[in-house]
Amino acid sequence: MSQIELSCISKTFKISQRPEGKFGMLRGAFVRESKIIRALDEITFEINEGELVGYIGPNGAGKSTTVKIMSGILTPDEGKCIILNRIPWKERVEHVSCIGVVFGQRSQLWWDLPAQDSFGLLKDIYSIPYRVYKKRLAELVETLDIDVLLKMPVRQLSLGQRMRCEVAAALLHSPKILFLDEPTIGLDAVSKLALREFLKKENLKNGVTMILTTHDMDDIETLCSRVMVIGRGKLLFDGRLDMLKEKYSPLRCINAVLDKHIEIFSIDGADSIKVNGNVLTVLFNPSKTAAHTMVERIASQFPLKDIVIEEQDIDEIIASMYKEMCL
């Protein structure tokens, strides 16, 4: 049975706008014009226990709004949402005790106090029994490697260190579902890798369902098997990551380094060919022409020094997808 069920969820916001024209600023002080924005438009999906889902979309697409509805903060205008057999905004207190939230841009730790104090407070807020708490904390401290950070005031931690503490704070009460809103924002490469590694482990070991919104496609690629794409409040794609790639980026790219400079020429089955000095870049569609055929065709004409076949960069796929859908 699915853990999270959303059907036909819609939410509108009223946005005040300043009137245009010469005296717009002055008029705006007296009369307000407001515009209704449809942030979410009949969003429907289901998520099963233990799934790791990437939720992506351009800025302002409605990602955070969805997360806020699922965490019981916002009430949608229409639609049904059932998470762990509860309606989040109706039984908020019970609901939030089973979920964990990490907002990359907001902190849930006490700024002036050591993280340890914040954890102690969370223990009381979630009424975690002392023994369970001790055990869980030891586990998190070890896997996230935050032992030395616990006694330092949070304001003195680096962003990467703080984020690890934030994740620990979100998981202290062993939630069944974890919402991560841009968890890797602003982190350096090492911290990102460490955080992804941890999330993956936590997902496998404890079966925590995770929903991750992000703009970092590497997050999605390394973590999520399933991707949902939202744009202008509508769910545009929901499926496996390779399906997304197949649909929006069927082409593969061959980068061949040759022995000598060459002139441009044609190869059967190639969608596009670019030559830059002695580097040859060929795009082709593997469902039409198999990769080995392409390599043979190139190799038959020139001596190859090195060759790499890769997928199109996922960032580019998403960018072209947004473009295609006029987002």
Partner: peptide, 9 residues
């Protein structure tokens, strides 16, 4: 938002 994600009034 974070405060509202706590199981407390």
């Amino acid at each position: 938002a974070i405060e509202m994600c706590r199981p407390i009034d």
